[in-house]
Structure formats: C-alpha cells, structure tokens
Amino acid sequence: MMRAVTFFAEGRLREGTLTADAAGVRLVRGSASDDAARLDGIVTGAFTDHHVHLQLVDARGLVASRLGRVIDLGANVDAIRKIALSGAVEVEYAGPFLTAVGGYPSDREWAPEGAVREVRDAVDAAAVIGSLADAGVSWIKVVGNSDAGPVLDDALLRTIVLEAAEHGLPVVAHAEGAGQAQRVARLGVARLAHSPFTERLSDDEVEEQAASVSWVSTMAVHEDEAYENVVDNVRRFVAFGGDLVYGSDMGNGPTPVDLRDSELEALREAGVEGLSLLRALAPLDPLRAGADLLLLPRGDPAGARRITPADLEA
C-alpha cells in the first residue's frame, strides 16, 4: 500500500510517500509513483508540549495522545525521572521550581513534595544545580513571581544562570508581576515559561525580548485582562521575529493530557497559524524509524489524528 503525501519536517513542507506493511506505516522522503493516490492533508510527527506538569495529571494518557515529546517544568526530580523512564513519550524535565525563601509556589497545596526548592545563597545554588545536573535535567526552572511573595534577587538569579551554564543547562523562568519578564530576560534566562501576561509590554520591550529569549505560549490558562495582555504581547513578539513555542501548562487546572485545542485557538487569535503554528508545535521527525505519524486534515493541527494502515487502503 502506498500514498503520496505532503509532510512537514525541518520547518517546511516537503513531498513524500507513505507505505504500510506488517511493521506498520512508514514515511519516506521523495515523491510517490505517478499512479499513487494522494492522502489529503499534511503528515507530521507527534507534537511537542513545552510546558507540562506530569505529576499533576495521569501521564499514562500521553500514550494515546497526539504528543510525542513534553518538557516538564516543575516536579519532584526523582518522580519525574521515573515517569520519563517509563517511555510513554519523550520527556525532558527541569526538576523542582527554584525560588526564593518563602517564594511562589512554596506555599501552594498543589505543589508535590520535593517539587519546590528554596535557594538561599550562591553556595546553595551551586549545590542544587550540580545535583540536578547529575539527575539528568535538561533545563533549570526559576521563579520570579512578585505578585505572590519574595523573588530571587538579581545577584542570586544571575548566579543560578551562570551555574546552570557551567553544566550546559539553559534556564527557563516563571515571570509574573510588574517588570518580572523584563528582569529575568535581562539577567540571562533563555526562555520564559509563560508568554508575559501580567502587563502589556511596550514595543521596545517586546522587540528586546524577541532578540534575547524564547517564549512558551501557555495563553489559554488566562482570562480577562491577563488574556488580552498575553494575546497582544504574543502578536507583537512573533511580528518582531521572536521564537514562540507551544505549551499548554498541562496540569494547571482541568487540562487535557493531549494537545489543547483552546491553546491553538489562542495562538491563532494572536496571528500564529499555518507554518508558524506547525513550527511552534515542534513535531518530532516523521522520517525517523518507528515514528508516530499524524495526519492533519486541511493542515489543521486541531484535527490531527494518528495515521493507521487503514488510511492507505483503497
């Protein structure tokens, strides 16, 4: 069985061929034979959610989802490592939230035991980052939420960034409260875990952010003024060429353990659609052996479903 298809890889659309045999469905690069029927839609690998909290959901649901890779940004490092080793999908993780003494979310009931680490000084920072590097983290997660308690001061946050760099680890920040998004970017974090929502940034501030950090979308978790702020900020961020990636903040409220349609709607409202939306979703390589393949009818990720051999039958 064979079908000609259009697929998305390496940031653009390409022509390929779907084949099916006893081992399953496989995508190969290059046009199919002239007499091969075409499967309408776009084929991709499974998507990436760049902001999840797997300790707060039933992670087993990922197996049947449209996600092939997730990045956990706040968990007990031993617990999340066990989840990652289970092999449901590819899991990268940051381990615990690193926050100031008494800082967010150290007082939150939803935070699992060991999912928050209060950092006291530079010596403490070096110790905790070293231990997290040994535990296999891919990111370091810091918190600057001035609306909910004390925050790491500039010197200590900068120390964390530099210590993380010594281990080859980028730093992602939860920035909330007036001026916090600008502050953490200035101090060297690589990514904001949430697109800025506390306030409407000026055009100059957005342009500076677009040149220095990436943003995780997480737009649909907001309402009212915060939602209006984040949509406006994201619209201008992508217009300035900023690197925006899809993230749902899975586990924050009743979120699906799957692609979040309301997040896709918010991204489109901010003008992120078409190939830009696919790039934000960062699908895994569909040409990789054994890759889970998705079919996007009319190229719409919201309608994505897994491809089966039945899709190739006449």
Rank of each mutant, 00 (worst) to 15 (best):
M219E: 11
W215P: 03
E208K: 05
Q209A: 08
G241E: 01
R235T: 13
R200F: 05
S217G: 09
F240E: 07
A220C: 11
P196S: 02
P196N: 01
T218M: 12
S214T: 06
H222D: 06
F237R: 01
A220Y: 09
G242Y: 01
E208A: 15
V213C: 05
R236I: 04
E225I: 08
D232I: 05
E199R: 09
Y227L: 15
E208N: 09
D232C: 12
G242I: 00
V221W: 06
N229I: 02
A239Y: 07
S212I: 07
S214G: 11
D232F: 14
F197S: 11
S217R: 13
V234F: 02
E223R: 15
E228I: 14
T218S: 13
F237D: 11
E207A: 15
D204N: 10
E225N: 07
S202G: 10
R236G: 03
F197C: 04
Y227S: 05
R235A: 12
T218P: 08
R200M: 11
H222A: 12
D224A: 14
G242K: 02
W215S: 04
Y227A: 10
N233K: 10
M219A: 14
E199M: 05
E223V: 13
G241N: 04
A210R: 03
D224T: 08
V230M: 01
V213M: 08
V213P: 03
R236F: 08
T198W: 01
V238E: 00
L201E: 00
N233L: 07
S217N: 13
V216E: 07
V213F: 14
R235Y: 09
A211K: 15
V221R: 08
F197G: 00
A239H: 08
E223S: 11
E223C: 03
D224Q: 10
G242S: 04
A211W: 15
L201W: 04
S214C: 06
E223P: 01
A220G: 10
R235P: 03
A211C: 12
R200P: 03
V238R: 00
Q209K: 00
A220M: 05
G242N: 04
E205P: 03
Q209H: 14
G242R: 00
T198Y: 00
G241H: 06
D203F: 12
R235H: 10
S202T: 15
A226F: 13
H222R: 10
Y227K: 11
A210L: 03
E205F: 05
D224I: 04
S217K: 15
D203L: 12
E207C: 12
R236Q: 14
G242P: 03
N233E: 09
E199F: 07
V230H: 00
D203N: 12
P196K: 02
F237N: 06
G241Y: 06
E228S: 15
Q209M: 11
E225T: 08
E223T: 11
T198D: 00
E207N: 13
